[in-house]
Design a binder for these strands. Structure first.
Lengths: 141, 141
DNA sequence: GAATTATATTTAGCTCGCTAAATATATCAC
DNA sequence: GTGATATATTTAGCGAGCTAAATATAATTC
């Protein structure tokens, strides 16, 4: 039985993604963060006070996942939650000073990992790669 | 604060990979398989009787992960385990008839998902994409 | 305004990967 | 051959995502 060449693309993506997760996980532990939490914080660095539903939307994950991330980040003192005054169903999420301080170190680690990932890939290839990935993303919707 | 363009590439990869997992998971449930198990079976379709360490190597995962996958696949009757005659430490993994029968349906689902993922991406772009992904894979090692 | 429906979040429990430590067997040094 | 070391697998327990069901509040309908 022969598997098509294209099959490699799916498996390659899988391997890259899990290897990145492993690397990144180790690196973020130094900042007392778990993988994924930095993406939630990133949304808050753009502007905090957002609801959990907005975080779901941004992170493209399910509400229970956000609940758990928020709980963990709150326990570690990076964020705090406040019930909305007008609608008691929604929680609004705010950065603490400790959370704000993570912005630069996280950005540094991001750049570090990107550089590792894209090492020896030329700028024009990176552009093309971005386009193809965007295309694949929209194919999956 | 501005994040570099390249950052999109990492995040894009992440989103694609997790979206694929979600799609694929649903699709494999119809065959009574969990995501990841099909990769183990694929190795066995190439030739069974391999050890768990060889599966680790092939799947690029840790021994406990293989233990769990093997346990689950055995409980569902897709494989069976046999202790090696010469070295009592190693377990050799064999396909059952039920496991062999999955080869074609899984290949079908693979092709289906690849086609969805790569839809509207031209053959020459696919080739380039493969090359770039391989490059990124080796960058991470 | 009471009952239904809709929305935001949480809880419970699952898969699947991981690490650290345990176990069981082989191999090597002497 | 006994003790130390190496290898293959398993166990225990954690993180991070998921779904299904529960809860709590708002909005709508009559």
């Amino acid at each position: 039985m022969t598997y098509t060449v294209d099959c490699d693309i799916r498996q390659s993506l899988d391997r890259i993604s899990s290897q990145m997760r492993r690397d990144y996980s180790e690196s973020l532990r130094e900042l007392n963060l778990y993988v994924g939490q930095e993406n939630l914080l990133y949304r808050l660095w753009l502007g905090d006070g957002v609801t959990q539903m907005q975080l779901c939307e941004h992170l493209k994950c399910e509400p229970p996942t956000v609940t758990n991330m928020v709980k963990s980040l709150e326990q570690n003192g990076f964020i705090h939650r406040k019930r909305d005054q007008d609608d008691a169903r929604v929680m609004r999420i705010f950065l603490t000073d400790k959370g704000k301080e993570l912005e630069n170190p996280v950005e540094f680690k991001w750049k570090q990992q990107q550089e590792k990932l894209l090492h020896s890939i030329l700028p024009e290839e990176r552009l093309l790669l971005r386009r193809l990935l965007k295309q694949m993303e929209s194919n999956l919707l």
